[in-house]
Nucleic acid binder design. Structure first.
Lengths: 248, 248
DNA sequence: TAGGGGAGCTTGTACAAACAAGCCAGCACC
DNA sequence: GGTGCTGGCTTGTTTGTACAAGCTCCCCTA
């Protein structure tokens, strides 16, 4: 069962994407929408709030809402899982475990994952036949067993873990920066040593906030980019100084 | 006048950051909070929704809310304006215009900014005395005059434009990837040609959705990183394939 | 001891009403 | 022609109520 406001939001989104409300035009007022859908104004507000959060619509007090653009946003699963993302967009893709081993957690890992032993896995993933991503993932001890049981060419670790032990990834924190390819990275991705890579480090937790994995993903430059929409009202993106210490 | 739910959110945020609600702990229920602040449940919900949007708190139906982390999020202005960001974090910073000229818009720029003539500005910005950012910004014709009147070492273009012509940046869309430093980039940033740069391309619009600027910002690797928090409920980040065409 | 069922708690959805705050166009006035 | 103000419109905030959906934990049973 989908809620009322989600259905209204979906209809409005379709109208925007379908050109009924072109970019730059004004959206109907809340009262009009409420009348059209026979819903309370609060319900319409919830629907519109979704579109505002997606960056599709701009809103400010006193003025009519306007259509900002038509970027479709992705689900959390689609961002988190390379396989689900690639599949949803119709890309050919693959993955292969290069190596994995259990070891003691470093102090930093122990603090992040809350355990003393970890499973480290090195994977390479490809898009349209080309290797594009080197993934160094560290799993907390309580998931290590399930991960070890996966086949080396497992397409989607996310889906496999959900189906095998009911593990659901619910929250993520991402750090994005650029690094040089190490000799090892370069060999795995088929690029020159020192060439630029887009790095995404992320920590993922369950519904309960329990950390599951800590991963260092490196994309070949040009293969993938990240997109974010923000506004005065909602700003999910944060800039922060890197590890380099200045003038120290 | 700050609204009620914003004040409640601020108090809760302080409690979380101050350790009253440690990471991993449960937040009081909505009813408890409503009683504590003598507010309606709906108002408390709005306050908590803010924290959820910031990624500070996790929430799902039926279960108590939990504290996910203590990352303070930034305002839109702080992300958009290098000067406001650096100042808020107490960094020494500077900026210098290297060159600027009016020219005809390329087809892509014309489509994005909705005008035929643009002002292109090249700036270098420094942090703690080191150059860290090369900024190539293209302004729409109707702002060009005001930008040209700014001094070459103007600290904050955002603030200057707001004060001079009342221009307020309200919405942004960001594309993040990694690129090699060109010879020109390398000279300006004091790095080797081909070394990795973190690139942030963004388009910014006014409240009305009118595009103001299109910018290509390149950060020296290691100087700055971007951070995003997401969840199954709210996912602001989108991954997309880059310009490279695979197997074509 | 392991498992199922359910009661109670907590968050999610929906409606209604009233007022506040901000925007904008049109009008009157200079 | 320009300027300033006002009134109506639109979104934002707050309260109250009722029910739905989902989670937790306890208790009972096999």
């Amino acid at each position: 069962m989908v809620s009322r406001y989600e259905r209204i939001a979906a209809e409005l989104r379709d109208d925007i994407l379908g050109g009924v409300h072109p970019v730059g035009s004004q959206l109907p007022t809340e009262s009009e929408l409420a009348a059209r859908y026979s819903a309370a104004r609060g319900t319409v507000r919830q629907a519109v709030a979704l579109l505002v959060a997606e960056g599709l619509v701009g809103s400010r007090q006193g003025a009519r809402r306007i259509v900002l653009g038509h970027a479709r946003s992705q689900s959390f699963a689609e961002l988190h899982s390379f396989a689900q993302w690639a599949r949803a967009h119709g890309y050919r893709f693959g993955g292969q475990v290069i190596g994995q081993r259990r070891r003691a957690a470093t102090p930093a890992e122990s603090a992040r994952l809350g355990c003393a032993e970890v499973l480290e896995v090195l994977r390479v993933r490809s898009l349209e036949g080309e290797p594009v991503l080197v993934e160094r993932t560290v799993y907390a001890d309580w998931t290590a067993g399930a991960v070890e049981r996966l086949p080396a060419d497992c397409e989607s670790v996310t889906e496999a873990l959900r189906d095998s032990i009911g593990l659901v990834f619910a929250y993520g924190e991402h750090l994005i920066d650029a690094v040089s390819a190490s000799a090892h990275d370069a060999r795995l991705l088929g690029v020159r040593r020192g060439s630029p890579l887009l790095r995404q480090r992320r920590i993922t937790t369950t519904h309960e906030g329990r950390p599951v994995e800590w991963s260092d993903d490196r994309y070949r430059a040009g293969s993938v980019e990240f997109s974010i929409r923000n506004s005065i009202g909602a700003n999910p993106l944060v800039r922060q100084a890197g590890d380099l210490r200045f003038g120290a």
